[in-house]
């Protein structure tokens, strides 16, 4: 399901004395079935942007199109249900959305809201819990008795259970240990292989490189670049400084190697690329 932003402007508190313009003329599209990463420094408007995808925020001007749904300033609240069924958002620290008596009940919340009956909702919840790797032994437990990592997974299942075609993840990896982070990236790729459109906000360029088909760079509420990771991360270093962005760790390492007198033919983005490049470089001697 493709997502298109057309000339979107957005202000918090639009129409009041406190109106505060955040997004400026954002035009961007996120192709169906692909993983689009959104990066940019703190306060650049990433979270504000993605909250338009399921109508939590409505553009002050311009429009957002998700599949065949058009969202504008005039879209009625009632119509948004239809959009929210298609788009699931996992927020940062999603564990603070948990509320029900049992894990299973919590995960059933979204499918029930979107009109599934109890049996269907339970089936959907079970599928989602399995997908994120929550063991069956935990399903009847209270979500508040779980460890931090388990809570995070249950919360993600709570969004995936309504089987949205678009999944938006807003910095989902914060506070996870290295293994948890790796599993999360795996889940993103799995969602993609199921044909879902994934939007992924992250400050971790290594995560971006690992999953993204394209990267949207935000700066001061504007989209300043949209490229594949390979193209984007080959830009000039000064540009990254200006955007307050990091290179992936492999790229950073390669820069340090260059400074030490070992220049690689091109800037590597992943550990494997870096290792291969170094091995050939050294092997040639």
């Amino acid at each position: 399901m493709a997502i298109t932003f057309e000339k979107v402007n957005f202000s918090y508190g639009a129409g009041t004395t406190l109106a505060h313009a955040i997004l400026h003329d954002v035009t961007v599209n996120m192709p169906s079935g692909q993983v689009t990463a959104i990066v940019g420094q703190t306060g650049s408007g990433k979270s504000t942007l993605v909250q338009h995808i399921n109508g939590l925020l409505k553009p002050t001007q311009g429009r957002v199109v998700v599949d065949d749904f058009e969202l504008t300033a005039r879209t009625k609240e009632k119509q948004l249900m239809q959009l929210r069924q298609k788009v699931g958002i996992v927020f940062q620290f999603p564990e603070n959305q948990l509320f029900a008596n049992s894990v299973l009940e919590d995960v059933m919340y979204a499918p029930l809201n979107f009109g599934a009956d109890k049996v269907a909702a339970q089936a959907a919840a079970e599928t989602a819990l399995r997908r994120v790797g929550v063991a069956e032994a935990l399903w009847q437990k209270s979500p508040f008795e779980l460890s931090g990592g388990q809570m995070r997974r249950v919360a993600m299942a709570g969004t995936l259970a309504s089987d949205p075609s678009v999944v938006v993840l807003d910095e989902p990896a914060a506070g996870l240990d290295p293994k948890g982070q790796a599993e999360l990236l795996q889940l993103v790729l799995e969602l993609k292989s199921l044909g879902k459109t994934v939007v992924f906000i992250s400050h971790h360029m290594d995560h971006v490189v690992a999953v993204a088909d394209q990267v949207v760079v935000m700066h001061d509420g504007r989209v300043v670049a949209k490229d594949t990771p390979a193209v984007l991360f080959n830009r000039d270093l000064d540009w990254f400084k200006k955007m307050k962005l990091d290179l992936p760790k492999a790229g950073q390492f390669a820069e340090k190697l260059t400074a030490a007198g070992m220049k690689l033919p091109e800037r590597p983005l992943t550990l494997t690329q870096l290792a291969t490049a170094i091995n050939t470089e050294v092997g040639h001697e």
């Binding site: 240990d177 290295p178 293994k179 948890g180 492999a250 550990l271 290792a275 170094i278 091995n279 050294v282």
Partner: peptide, 16 residues
């Protein structure tokens, strides 16, 4: 133990 090495450590492991 669910952990990783620092980047340089993971890289060194791939060196030949």
């Amino acid at each position: 133990n669910g952990l990783a090495l620092p980047f340089a450590g993971e890289l060194a492991a791939q060196m030949q």
